[in-house]
Amino acid sequence: MVAVNIVEATRVVVDVLPDALIVSSLGTATSAARLATDDGPHFYLGAAMGSALAAALGLAEAVPERQVVALLGDGDFLMGASTLWSVSAWRPANLVVVVLADGAYAITGGQPVAPSLRLAEVADALDGLAGVTADSAGSLRAALTSIDRPGIVEARISERVWPGPSPFVDPAEVVRGVRSNIAAGP
């Protein structure tokens, strides 16, 4: 297995889905999305841990003509995990969930995330939801290209890095950016 870090994984997401609107969870996911999109006009969450997937579900239903990617840390995903059942219920055909599974609460110091995620198996157990595990840049690329929507990809991260850009975003700028992105179209 080739080592994959959060920046590389996020760059694959942006490369495969360049027109997607990204909803990133607090911490490394927001930092990586800012880096990989050159601070593009995306929905970066600065806090609200556990709410990023719900926000992505709402956004996906609001803009059905756009691809929406929920880019989540594993700790964030677990805190709002019941939203995956709502995704199964409402099934937006334009939503892909990518969980950056590095097994750590990175922003608070790298404390371990206790459980295994097993998201492909979870998705398989739910109605109307596809799930894939990716453990290399190549398999992540393949998963994002082929997975049914809505779908969830567990991107297993084997190398920990801090992406760089601050995850402390300016909310007003974020809102303006997302609205301009939507107005500009895919």
Binding site: A54, L57, G58, E61, T83
Partner: peptide, 24 residues
């Protein structure tokens, strides 16, 4: 009107935030 029964109140707020940022 579309009705979205969700699993938790926090999720309703997050969902609505995603709608609101899109101008809905």
């Amino acid at each position: 009107l579309p009705l979205r029964s969700l699993t938790r109140e926090e999720e309703c707020v997050g969902y609505a935030a995603g709608q609101r940022i899109a101008g809905r």
